[in-house]
Nucleic acid binder design. Structure first.
Lengths: 322, 322
DNA sequence: TCAAAAGTGTTATCCTTACACCCATGT
DNA sequence: ACATGGGTGTAAGGATAACACTTTTGA
């Protein structure tokens, strides 16, 4: 059936499964056994067209197998095919093409949904995603690591007179008075990678001119190209929040408006204006009151709301254009 | 090297190469030799990682080979992996995964750029894209074919009580007073496909309850899943016009504002308000006057402009939010 | 009565949309 | 002079962003 005169290509499917707990965005990882540093991986596996009719079915199957977890919304991100960047240990194939997916775990308690066997077998767990991208969390203001470590190192990298480097830096990192664009997560990671400032670049045999102490500043590394897929997932999710009501997949059935705002803030990595956020939610008719109030955490009790699924039919692009 | 116990997968790359002539968006096609009906194809070929380091390099290489054409901007659209939908004639592989790309041909005279040999060999030519999607051109008002043929047939398809069908129809085709969303090209094509109203659905062995006379109303067919890739390309291009200055890749170096507007209208498939369009162009500082005026086509001579490449550095998302 | 968090009112500004009119050229 | 397309001014309405203040609970 298979002929040996053709290059043998395998399709790898990787999923960035997002969850949420205590205003912290989480990402589902598995751990290579006996691993040291930088061995976090996204759940992934080979696509076998004989077993699964579509990519999506294959993906759901092995997220289920590796984490014992059901996922809700799934969407394709990007297919990475370049040589060298993400070799995977598959002796059957000469070349692995990896298709990245964004997936959302359903409900408010993702960690409890991981099955005990899966935890044993694959070391599945949810990790806060800002562990991998510390410079993407602006909720408490501009992260110090940017001005103290990242930008100086990036400036040095771009100081060779190559103007395109300087231009890309300017746009991705909001230099010269530009506003920080929370969606450019991938652009920023790619620049750090090219500058040799993240661990993966060294692992891939790149010219790394900086000592490994730098890697402690640039977040936890992942195996293969999984951190790149995660960056793509965060970019996409942040973009899509603005015109699709995806947040509600990550919330419980009932929630207060403040909880909703904190969740959006956690995902977008920035602080939002309370009144304007509420006006936006109301204007888009995204929620309806349940009539009950929450057990408060010290203060005035808050009204509880639920997602109005009907908006999906009413408006073409319901979201939170913040 | 290759082992015969694994399913053999091939990667197919397909490109939707967009050009423009006389306010008509064009798409580069090749023709199967001795072909009858529905044999238009996008330029495509297998990805061989031994010959090309990245997808994009492979893609450029065989667009060059099949059409003798240089392409400018290239971006990945989507990777289609579902069985049955797009079998391709490759005896070396059990399954073909197809990665679709959007590409823009450079300059104002794409047809002249096709080499004579390529035309002979592969029948390469540029076709108006609305030939494949007649219902997407609203420049002269709402297309008659919608109310006369497509919607009645779609209503019949959705009349089985399945509410999700009705909901999807409503959003994709702007029923019940919703506004037509020019970006939902793929959604609309997929609905027509599922309803068995396009030729490809019949070719794929689907249950086609309607006579083939309908196919004359639903545009020219393409081989494999190429029309789906084209629909994806148009969707993406229309979306991206709004926040990236892609139009200028399809224009000559100098142009009048009316030419620019007509071009955007051709791509977006709808009429734009003249003054507001001009204000938008000016507000975003997308162009600068050359100081010269055009040889007019009967009327007051128009000022000529050129694209201000600097905007790419000045603003994060320069485009024509129309 | 005070801390903590929920919830509201109001204004200045900008952007969008639409209106209608004038200008420069060839025939 | 008039047809043809180029080019502009202006005002209404809505969306946005920022201001600061009141309300309801638990301790």
């Amino acid at each position: 059936m298979a002929r040996s005169d053709a290059t043998n290509i395998a399709i790898g499917l990787s999923a960035a499964v997002v969850g949420l707990k205590d205003q912290t965005p989480l990402i589902l990882t598995i751990r290579a056994d006996g691993a040291g540093d930088g061995q976090d991986m996204l759940p992934f596996g080979p696509f076998d067209p004989l077993r699964h009719r579509t990519f999506e079915l294959g993906l759901r199957a092995f997220v289920e197998a590796q984490a014992g977890l059901q996922i809700g919304h799934v969407e394709q991100l990007y297919t990475f095919g370049d040589r060298g960047r993400h070799a995977q240990p598959d002796d059957k194939a000469d070349h692995v093409v990896s298709v990245g997916y964004l997936a959302l775990s359903r409900g408010a308690a993702p960690e409890d949904a991981i099955s005990a066997e899966a935890l044993k077998l694959s070391g599945a767990s949810f990790q806060p995603w800002y562990v991998y991208f510390p410079w993407e969390d602006w909720r408490a203001g501009r992260p110090d690591v940017l001005d103290q470590h990242l930008l100086p190192a990036l400036f040095e990298w771009a100081s060779d007179g190559d103007v395109t480097k300087a231009e890309r830096l300017k746009l991705a990192f909001a230099l010269d008075g530009l506003v920080w664009d929370d969606e450019r997560v991938l652009d920023r990671y790619e620049l750090l990678y090219e500058a040799g400032l993240v661990n993966e670049a060294a692992a891939d045999g790149r010219d790394s001119r900086l000592v490994t102490a730098m890697f402690a500043r640039t977040g936890r590394a992942m195996r293969y190209d999984h951190r790149r897929i995660l960056a793509t997932a965060i970019s996409r999710l942040r973009a899509k929040l603005k015109y699709r009501p995806l947040v509600f997949e990550l919330m419980g059935d009932e929630f207060t408006l403040t909880e909703l705002q904190k969740t959006v803030e956690a995902l977008a990595g920035r602080h939002l204006h309370k009144q304007n956020f509420r006006r936006l939610v109301e204007a888009n008719a995204l929620v309806e009151p349940t009539g009950t109030t929450s057990v408060q955490t010290g203060g005035r009790p808050a009204q509880l709301f639920r997602f109005r699924r009907e908006v999906l039919l009413e408006r073409p692009a319901p979201g939170l254009r913040v």
